[in-house]
Amino acid sequence: QIFVKTLTGKTITLEVEPSDTIENVKAKIQDKEGIPPDQQRLIFAGKQLEDGRTLSDYNIQKESTLHLVL
């Protein structure tokens, strides 16, 4: 699982696999929060994550925290 922290300070927990794409993660966030993926920007280690890449591409491991910017 990974954590996604929103600007409001809320933390969302997501069940993911390293092979999941960023697009996939955004879809999971939409399921939980109702935020359309095209409004979501995910930041990890100061980098904006691209939809077509996977979590493992960015070396995002379990218990990692991503930041969600709208």
Rank of each mutant, 00 (worst) to 15 (best):
G46W: 05
K5F: 07
F44P: 00
Q61C: 10
S56V: 08
N24P: 00
L70N: 08
K26V: 02
Q40D: 02
V69C: 13
L70F: 10
T65A: 04
G46F: 05
I60L: 04
F44G: 02
T13D: 04
D31Q: 15
E23D: 08
K10L: 12
T13R: 08
L55C: 06
E50C: 11
A45G: 13
I35C: 06
I12N: 01
K10D: 07
E63T: 06
E33A: 09
A27Y: 15
K47P: 01
L55T: 03
R53Q: 09
I2R: 01
L14V: 10
V16M: 08
H67I: 14
L66D: 01
D57F: 11
G52I: 07
Q48P: 12
Q61K: 12
E50L: 10
G52E: 12
V16G: 02
I2A: 02
I22E: 01
K10I: 09
D20Q: 05
T21Y: 08
L55D: 00
L55N: 00
G34F: 04
D38Q: 11
I12P: 00
E17Q: 13
K26W: 03
V69Y: 11
K10F: 08
T11E: 06
V4K: 00
D51Y: 04
Q40V: 10
T13P: 06
L68I: 05
L7N: 15
E17L: 15
N59K: 08
G9T: 03
E17T: 13
E50H: 08
V69F: 12
I29R: 00
G34E: 04
T8E: 14
Q1R: 13
T13L: 11
D57I: 03
G9Y: 04
L7G: 14
G46T: 04
T54Y: 06
G9D: 05
A45S: 09
E15R: 10
K47D: 07
K26S: 01
V16H: 05
L70A: 10
K28Y: 07
V69E: 15
A27D: 08
K62V: 12
K5E: 08
V4C: 04
R41A: 09
I60Q: 01
D20S: 07
E63D: 15
I2L: 08
A27H: 13
D57T: 05
E15A: 11
N24S: 12
E63A: 09
R53N: 11
I60A: 02
Q1E: 07
K32C: 09
K10W: 10
K28H: 05
L68W: 02
L66N: 01
D31W: 11
I43D: 05
E23W: 13
I43C: 15
Q39F: 08
V69H: 10
I43V: 11
K47G: 06
K47N: 09
K32E: 07
S64F: 09
E15K: 11
Q30Y: 15
G34M: 05
L14K: 00
D20T: 10
I29N: 00
K5T: 12
K32G: 04
V4S: 01
S19N: 12
E33T: 13
E17F: 14
V69Q: 10
I2D: 01
F3T: 07
L7S: 15
D38I: 09
Q1Y: 15
T21Q: 04
Q61V: 14
Q39E: 11
S64C: 09
T54N: 05
A45P: 01
